[in-house]
Design a binder for these strands. Structure first.
Lengths: 123, 123
DNA sequence: TCAAAGGGTGACATCAGTGTGAGGGTCAAT
DNA sequence: ATTGACCCTCACACTGATGTCACCCTTTGA
């Protein structure tokens, strides 16, 4: 598929798709006329990338996490250096921290909203 | 306490503390000589702010969420407009999405690392 | 065949969160 | 009285993710 379709299907500006490619987050073939040509799986990949960006991870890190998200993953195993393992472990821990932080604040906001609603109903 | 102590206790550059204040995320009194003077609770507040920033929320949003994190919260109730409630509900939902996304990817990375370790031990 | 829609590159702009440095006060210890 | 540590403001710079615009090519349909 060409970039326009990928854009609408992922609700992502064309500009960003090119940017993600520039950052090595997605890949594309080229048609004879130079147009980018994407495979079907790229749709999911883009959504994954956007999710991670939205959650606060930088492209640099996302690039390293991406191999973990492939199925079958056996293909990518031989390329893993101890260095990369360390990076991934670190990122995994950071993600855990973020989950904890978000969960805590999510609860706080929820509780607050509940209290507000009770307050309104009481008045 | 003065800004230096707050900085070391929160492991946050002085520059950022001033920035957070400029953005309305923390408050300070002033000593007669113009130095900022922080109350004890600001330490937690800064950590909260940093956590939320790290998780991808912009200061603009954090500012709106902060009232939810106060105890006792009754003091802040009267000021809540329906508009703010809507914003908070929206942010709460976005946080839930982020938690889900992070959890999914955290699991993926974890599984991947497990697989890698199995692979190494087998070789 | 011409216009419109879609694609390509490149570059500059913006915004938020930071870093950093200049230039200048305050205060405590020597 | 001076030094050094700490504080102040102001301001310019950078990075990363994005918006936007300029300029040119290709494909498609009236």
């Amino acid at each position: 598929m060409r970039i326009g379709e990928l854009s609408t299907r992922t609700r992502t500006p064309v500009r960003l798709l090119r940017y993600y490619e520039e950052q090595g987050l997605i890949a594309s073939d080229r048609l004879p006329n130079g147009y980018r040509d994407y495979e079907e799986y790229v749709v999911d990949r883009v959504l994954q990338v956007r999710g991670l960006l939205d959650v606060g991870l930088p492209t640099r890190i996302i690039k390293q996490i991406l191999p973990c998200l492939n199925t079958p993953r056996t293909i990518h195993m031989p390329y893993v250096t101890p260095d990369m393992v360390a990076t991934l472990e670190h990122e995994r821990d950071r993600m855990a921290e973020k989950i904890e932080c978000l969960t805590k604040n999510h609860r706080a906001v929820t509780d607050y909203l509940d209290a507000v609603r009770r307050d309104i109903r009481a008045s």
